[in-house]
């Protein structure tokens, strides 16, 4: 079912200052519908604080965090505009899953029938009558997601939704987020792990120490921040080296007996080798790990700060 009101999240010069520290410092970015936006940053970067300001839980020191151009408290039907899961453990341990959702549904002005629907969607129909305190983390996560989706909101916000999940849970949550975006919703989820972004996000917003570092499509981020190399092995290294130099390509020994060629594709290297009649035993395209790129990016900023 398509969301009733597609909307975008906007942060404008968003700043949150505490007595001794600045958590978020002049952030400006937009989150658009129809794609999964990953909100990436190391622990303590200000991700949760930013998400809490979007939800009106924390008040910005200056700037604004709006949903569809309005602060959440100004929207007429907040539960139908935005749904969020900030902490999967935030459930009363003695309250059953059904009662928990019934309370949220009532507050959001949703019909009671939504409760069973939402439980079924996340696969908790069987556990509806059990107190949430008995749930595993994965089940709490599912209940948290059901809670976020009960108003059929156009915008969903998840804080570290993949944290602590088993592989099956991670795949389930990923598929769900992709489905929600495909339905035209605005999906924003945070993580401190680059690896979690690669398979889930279409677009990245990267912050560090409250500052915006990047706001671009994931593919572009990867292309910009990592370099591609070609690794090749041959029984006749000297000849290949010469042939590559003649073709204007720079090759170096990687210390394991392979040659690493930067600034070239496997096609280029294969062509040079064939022309020079050099036998190849390996020809592989290699990309720097995105995790490394992300770490390099955040650690240089640390030095600069």
């Amino acid at each position: 079912m398509p969301p009733s009101s597609p909307a975008v999240l906007q942060a404008h010069a968003l700043t949150k200052r505490y007595r001794r520290a600045v958590a978020v410092d002049g952030l400006t970015f937009e989150v658009r519908p129809g794609r999964v936006t990953g909100f990436l940053g190391p622990n303590g970067a200000g991700k949760s604080t930013t998400l809490r300001m979007f939800l009106g839980l924390d008040r910005p020191t200056s700037g604004a965090a709006t949903v569809g151009g309005l602060r959440l408290a100004e929207t007429p039907h907040p539960a139908q505009v935005v749904g969020a899961m900030l902490d999967a453990r935030a459930l009363h341990p003695r309250r059953t899953a059904r009662d928990h959702l019934a309370a949220v549904a009532a507050a959001g002005g949703m019909p009671r029938g939504r409760v069973a629907e939402a439980l079924a969607r996340v696969g908790l129909a069987e556990a509806a009558h059990r107190p949430a305190g008995e749930f595993s983390l994965g089940m709490k996560q599912r209940l948290g997601i059901a809670t976020a989706l009960i108003g059929d909101p156009g915008v969903v916000i998840f804080d570290e939704p993949l944290n602590g999940l088993d592989p099956e849970g991670i795949r389930w949550a990923r598929t769900l987020m992709r489905d929600l975006a495909a339905e035209g919703r605005t999906v924003l989820f945070s993580s401190h792990l680059m690896g979690e972004m690669e398979l889930t996000a279409d677009h990245l917003v990267v912050i560090h120490r409250g500052h915006l570092l990047a706001d671009q499509p994931l593919a572009e981020f990867i292309a910009d921040r990592t370099t591609e190399h070609v690794r090749t092995r041959t029984p006749d290294r000297a000849r290949l080296h010469v042939a590559l130099s003649r073709a204007g390509l720079h090759a170096r020994d990687d210390g394991t007996g392979a040659l690493v060629v930067t600034g070239a594709t496997t096609d280029d290297v294969g062509h040079v080798a064939a022309t020079a009649s050099v036998e190849l035993s390996e020809l592989t395209a290699v990309r720097d790990s995105l995790e490394d790129a992300f770490l390099a990016m955040t650690s240089t900023r640390k030095d600069a700060a």
Binding site: L55, G56, A73, L86, A90, L91, P93, A107
Partner: peptide, 17 residues
């Protein structure tokens, strides 16, 4: 009870007033 469990964030998201 809501502050102890963290449920207050859900309550205030659904009902920001």
């Amino acid at each position: 009870g809501e502050y102890a469990s963290g449920q207050i964030t859900t309550s205030l998201t659904v009902a920001p007033r």
